[in-house]
Amino acid sequence: MRKAIKEDKDLVVGILCSAFKPIKIPNSINFVVKQDKHRNHRLKILMEYMFYNALKFGDILISDNEKGVILLQYHRKKMLTFNTVFWDIKLAFCCIGIENVYKVLKRENALKKYHPKEPHIHPWIMAVKSEHWGRGTGVRLIQEAFEYYKDNDLPIIIETTTNSNLKLYKKFGFKIIKETHELDYPLYFLKR
């Protein structure tokens, strides 16, 4: 596993897009991305947004085989800059759609409400290229991330919308700390 640098943008965005293009069920990504004939382009804009934010305010970890990634956010590092305002405006106009901004802001408030206020590690998104699903890349990626943070005492807080992810995270010792259905899909918050 290695930390991504700016030059890894295309690799990271490619992995993220590959992982989420085939998923059409209600989840966090499909909630944010306007669902129309431009979905794939909008998805790419969201993944670029996430890449730049994680690079600036967290870490991006790439698996050794370069088929999986984890983007982490450190909320205590996040701040308002010219770039973040630009990224937010681009996301609103080119990915979410102006008519959907309110519902996405409502979602963000729900997420903030359930995340602990104390410092924690937040794996923002984890993805494996779709053609590598079921080959153990995701499991290895989680194991490598735990190894990467083994000397850190901060709790790890993660959220998921799918039962398959829920089962996987529970195998790694995560416990559900909150479950909500206030959005258009179930949302589980887990802690380790």
Rank of each mutant, 00 (worst) to 15 (best):
R2S: 09
K6C: 02
D8T: 10
K9R: 14
L11I: 13
V12G: 09
V13S: 07
C17F: 02
S18P: 01
S18Y: 01
A19G: 02
F20P: 03
K21Y: 12
I23A: 05
I25M: 13
P26L: 04
P26R: 03
P26F: 04
N27D: 05
S28Q: 14
S28N: 12
N30Y: 04
F31L: 15
F31C: 13
V32T: 11
K34V: 03
Q35N: 14
Q35H: 10
Q35R: 07
D36Q: 04
K37C: 02
K37W: 01
H38W: 04
R39Y: 15
N40I: 01
N40F: 03
H41E: 15
H41P: 00
R42D: 01
I45P: 00
L46Y: 06
M47K: 13
M47Y: 05
E48V: 04
E48R: 14
F51V: 09
Y52V: 04
N53A: 04
A54G: 13
A54P: 04
L55D: 06
D59E: 15
I60L: 14
I60G: 12
S63L: 12
E66C: 11
K67I: 06
G68R: 11
I70R: 06
I70H: 03
Y74G: 01
Y74V: 09
H75P: 03
R76M: 02
R76L: 02
M79S: 15
L80K: 13
L80F: 07
T81L: 07
F86C: 07
F86Q: 14
D88W: 07
I89Y: 10
K90N: 12
K90Q: 08
L91D: 10
A92D: 10
A92Y: 12
C94Y: 13
G97D: 06
G97M: 02
N100A: 05
K103R: 15
K103Y: 01
V104E: 08
V104S: 06
K106P: 00
R107M: 15
R107W: 04
E108P: 02
A110L: 14
A110E: 15
K112I: 00
K113P: 00
K113Q: 12
H115T: 14
P116L: 10
P116S: 10
E118G: 00
H122M: 05
H122A: 06
P123Q: 06
I125S: 02
M126R: 01
A127D: 09
K129Y: 03
S130H: 09
E131H: 12
H132Q: 15
G134Y: 09
G134R: 13
G134F: 09
I142Y: 03
I142E: 01
A145D: 03
E147I: 06
E147C: 03
K150D: 01
N152M: 04
D153T: 15
P155Y: 02
P155I: 09
I156N: 14
I156M: 15
I157M: 07
E159D: 14
T160A: 14
N165C: 07
L166A: 09
L166N: 10
K167E: 10
L168G: 05
F172M: 07
I176P: 00
I176W: 00
I177T: 09
K178L: 05
T180N: 11
E182S: 09
E182Y: 05
E182D: 11
Y185I: 05
Y185Q: 13
P186S: 13
K191A: 04
K191Y: 00
